[in-house]
Each structure stands twice: as C-alpha cells, then as structure tokens.
C-alpha cells in the first residue's frame, strides 16, 4: 500500500490551537466574579427604596476595599440609572475618604473595620458587606456571601428599617436568609 493514514498530525495542531486560547484562565474567572457582585449591588440599588429626600441627584455607590470590583462597576454599569437617578461609583481606600453615598460596599478583606465604617456613615447609606462565612454575619443591612459556590445575600431587615429603607418584595423573597 502506498497511501498512509494522516491522523497523527491532528493532535499536534489541535493542541497548539487550544493551548493558545487558554492563556490566563484566572482573569476571566475574576471578571465574572466581579460582574456577579456588581449585578447584586445593582439589584440592591433597584430593589431597595430610599426615603424620598435621597431620590434626587446622582445615586452614588461607594466601594471600600475592592478596586477590581470598582473597575468592573465603572466599566460595566456606567450610565445605568435607578429610578430617575444616574448611578455613579466611587472607590475609597480608607474610612476617612468615605463620602455621602447611597450604598456602600465593604469587601471581605475590610470587614474588620465595619464598626469604624459605620461611625462615618449617615442615615442615607445602605451598608452592604461581603462575608467570608455566614457565621461572621455583621450588623450591615445586607451581607453578600458565597454558599455552595453561589453568591447569595442575607438581609438584615430590622437594621435597614431603622434608617427607613424599604426592601422590595422580590429582594426579600429571594434572599438566602433574613435576620
């Protein structure tokens, strides 16, 4: 027989192609994680009702402790609105920088300073904290946490109601737990 099978060449080519397409797997994983966190914050902005006196001007979301999340929010959720308010984002590196925001997100790396953070917040701010674990539940109004690989949230309704925030029904219904 003069003709020979050609298949052995196949794998080399496919391996070359596939190896070129999987450079830095962690970056997209990180980006998707940040987007999910951003999606939840956006849902909180849309499904929590602030007292009417805070419904004018821009809707400011402050991020404390996660520059990556801030960058994703600033790119992905740019020009989004809640009600009639345009959503804007700000990043804080220290508690002293925390300004007059509607919603403040504190990343899990910074939960140790929650008490300090709470001192500088005014009535207007809905505090959202990322938890490493539900047992570390904070006195924030909403806690974001991972349960079985899924990002979920815990509502602290009594804490939210102290500041006259009204939590929407959908948000309440779909919460992982409510305190």
């Amino acid at each position: 027989m003069t003709r020979r099978f050609k298949i052995p060449l196949l794998f080399g080519l496919f391996l070359l192609i596939t190896s070129l397409t999987i450079v830095s797997q962690t970056d997209p994983a990180k980006a998707s994680r940040m987007k999910m966190q951003g999606m939840y914050l956006y849902q909180f902005a849309k499904n929590v009702y602030w007292p009417s006196e805070y419904n004018t001007g821009d809707f400011l979301i402050g991020i404390y402790g996660s520059k990556d999340l801030f960058n994703v929010l600033n790119n992905t959720f740019k020009d989004k609105v809640t009600g009639s308010q345009k959503i804007v984002f700000d990043f804080y590196e220290s508690t002293s920088e925390i300004a007059d925001c509607h919603l403040l997100f504190v990343s899990k790396e910074e939960t140790s300073v929650i008490t300090k953070v709470k001192k500088v917040l005014d009535q207007k701010t809905l505090l959202v904290t990322e938890l490493t674990d539900i047992s570390n539940s904070t006195s924030s109004m909403i806690n974001l946490l991972y349960v079985n690989s899924r990002l979920k949230y815990q509502l602290n309704k009594s804490e939210a109601e102290k500041n006259n925030f009204k939590i929407g029904q959908t948000l309440t219904k779909l919460a992982y737990s409510t305190i």
């Binding site: 987007k35 999606m39 779909l174």
Partner: peptide, 15 residues
C-alpha cells in the same frame, strides 16, 4: 456570566 447575563436582567434571572 460575562456574555449572556444582561446587566438589566431581573434578580430571578441573575440567580
């Protein structure tokens, strides 16, 4: 998450 999940999706869809 990155391409199919619309940022204006409702919460049920996000979950």
């Amino acid at each position: 998450i990155m391409e199919e999940l619309d940022i204006d999706a409702d919460l049920e869809m996000v979950i």
